[in-house]
Amino acid sequence: MKRLVLAEFAEPEPLVEAARKLRESGREGLDAYSPYPIHGIDEALQLPRSKVPLVALIAGLAGATGGYVLQWWTNAIDYEINVANRPPHAWPTNIPVTFESGVLVCVLTIFFGSLFYFFGLPRTYHPVFEAEAFRSASLDKFWISAELREGEEPGDLERALRELGAGRVTHVKEED
């Protein structure tokens, strides 16, 4: 059962600063919510490098290999047809489909992979939704969330966040 302290900021810069200070003080389970990408928040939260490029590379190479092998096997091995007297394995003519299938598999993988793995969809519940005010995170405000440790009271952390420039501060408890 997670317990979170949520704090709302009016501007992105104080949020980045608050995230950095909290992380440096050893706080864990930090996250930030914003209507648009904020410069420097990755560094402030020390988020690991995104895995999406690696996934894209592997998927792209797999798709390209699959596309090429399919053409090679069908045209040169399984059912040879003499087209315009080109050799059955005419590699230049295979390149466009190889490229396209590489792009296709890559794009589909990162799109659905992001949706269902990295973004965790379909996710119908998140503890931050316990706070009604959190709606402003998708409009014009910037939120930070910090996890409370086992048995820790929210008071100190809430005060610290206010001192860092937060407007509204609240705490929520994950439903069982």
């Binding site: 315009a84 007297n85 080109r86 005419a90 230049p92 003519t93 390149i95 466009p96």
Partner: peptide, 12 residues
Amino acid sequence: AFSQYMLMYHAN
């Protein structure tokens, strides 16, 4: 560059 080559290769 590849398009130019491949199209001519293909049309033969």
